[in-house]
Design a binder for these strands. Sequence first.
DNA 1: GCCAATTTTGCACACCTGTGCAATTCCGTC
DNA 2: GACGGAATTGCACAGGTGTGCAAAATTGGC
Lengths: 343, 343
Amino acid sequence: MKQARPDRTQGKSFVSAQQVADRAGVSRSAVSRTFTDGASVSPTTRKRVLEAAEELGYHVNHLARGLIRDRSNIVSLVVTDINTPYQAAMIEALTRRLQAADKVAMVINSSGQNASVESALRQTLHYRADATIVLSGQPAASLIETCLNNGQHVILVNRDDPVPGPETIMVTNRTAARQAFDMLDRAGCKRLAVIASAVGSASLSARKKAFVAAAEAAGVPVSVTELGPTAYQSGVEAARLVLSRADRPDGVFCVTDLLACGFLDAARNEFGLTVPDELCVVGFDDIEQAGWSSYELTTFRQPIDQIADHVVNLIDHHTQIRQVQEPMRFQTQTVWRKSVRPR
Amino acid sequence: MKQARPDRTQGKSFVSAQQVADRAGVSRSAVSRTFTDGASVSPTTRKRVLEAAEELGYHVNHLARGLIRDRSNIVSLVVTDINTPYQAAMIEALTRRLQAADKVAMVINSSGQNASVESALRQTLHYRADATIVLSGQPAASLIETCLNNGQHVILVNRDDPVPGPETIMVTNRTAARQAFDMLDRAGCKRLAVIASAVGSASLSARKKAFVAAAEAAGVPVSVTELGPTAYQSGVEAARLVLSRADRPDGVFCVTDLLACGFLDAARNEFGLTVPDELCVVGFDDIEQAGWSSYELTTFRQPIDQIADHVVNLIDHHTQIRQVQEPMRFQTQTVWRKSVRPR
DNA sequence: GCCAATTTTGCACACCTGTGCAATTCCGTC
DNA sequence: GACGGAATTGCACAGGTGTGCAAAATTGGC
């Protein structure tokens, strides 16, 4: 059934709708309508067109289609630290759903120099993306403002910019952080510590603050450590710093699982501590590694699937309003494993 | 300096070059040439155009540009298991370099149903991508054939399809696998095992076969275990299976670090074995977790940066030849850590 | 100031598609 | 077979850009 296509070794360009029309003996409009949902074509011509298209290897040029319609069906994902388990999982969930909705994801790596980020983000506008999804705290708010000014539909995930326009999706950071305190408190921890990072986003900052507030309200001493990027190595270094103190903590809340993994490894392998007997650790995100048997980390799961579902829903049903919107908040799910003593 | 743009709340479409031309008092061609590299514009008009563009918030429409030129500056990355450390690192490296080359990455998630993969892969053709980079063994060869038939520039990474057309990039799998045997042999291991997966790609298969061949050539007994996908959990299950045997192996080669992490965890936490004294383990890829202090995995690093560099080079200098091409092979780098006894 | 050589500019066409509108065809009914 | 209504089809325009070509403007030299 599969027919060899006329070879394109001559550098001949792609097949156009006109060529299909000629071959099928119909007008170009008929070809266009055949590939347009809800357009009126008789079954006869539709069949002829499809056959001709198959023989010639025709594919609708989405560049031209996007030019005519207002929507390009491209969605930009702006993300830093792609090779971080949490972000990678987010990209996986989003690309899968976008494809199911006949859209396609354009990934913009916003790590690195701010200048290159800006030029990359401009691609969002260049390609007339249907929406821009910002997954990380990295790109400056001014760049987002640029997108908004150009009528871009911007969706912020786990950010907290009080600018008018973008829709915002968050997680119940404060509730979870308070619960983290409760868990450690009930486990009998007397000296608490929270491990964050130097470049943390608003989301991480909210977790940190809520934990500290809860501890102080309960009169439990708590120390705050923030160094390096939000990465495994930062957790290791934080552990070295914090655990070598005379009054080292016996309960630790790491605002990210990645930090928690580093902290746990250093605590066990460098300080010889046993978890959860001598030290309790709580993480955040529930990345895959948190479930690995070397960690068995008690943590809070971000409902990535729900978030991704909601994001693509937002893209479809979009009404342009430029006012500060109340963020949509998803509840985290507590995942009890073995890094905290059961009550 | 930054000027507020005329508000677009009326749903007004994007700014076009014509509007910029009107405002700058020049022809539309002048605007087009201003934003085209190597075009002839006088400094005076260039300046006027840039000012008008800034004021109006003009952005070249890459859909229209791609329509005129043959190249859309979009590069498709076809990848399964995005939230796997190795693939995520690859995406990070590629997106970074593509952006530096003024291109943009379109990520196509080829996990899941084959039908949806096919429709997603079609996007590559719809958007007239400059090239398609296939990062995983998942999509069927027939889909790649479709891309090739449509004149797509296809680059295969760590695949081994003997079809004419695509350029192929590989890693010295066999050399590394043989070296893995040498490492275990010199460490004094007497009973070897290789852990692969049921859905392995050609690359993984090559590692497995080369290791087995080396072992058999040296007269050392070796068992092969292949179950489940290429994931942590498969490593755990393989360990449960293999280590509960009476003559359990004392030297194991996992064709992937992810498998090795699972194997190590199960070996230590479920069987109480000490590494590397009672068991030596070698992995492949050098994912980030291999360096975490719970694993300290001896492994082979894939030169991801070099591969990514080479890929974008291939995209730029592309001569269309439809013949089977010798794969470009990159050498892995041996990373000695602590999961194998030093000689 | 004049002329030739070079640079710059504008016009018009091309790229490929979607769609409103009017003309045509089709179908069922009398 | 005629006729009314519905479905289908083709025409022509629009969408935003790049670029060859000829006209215009600029530059340099004398």
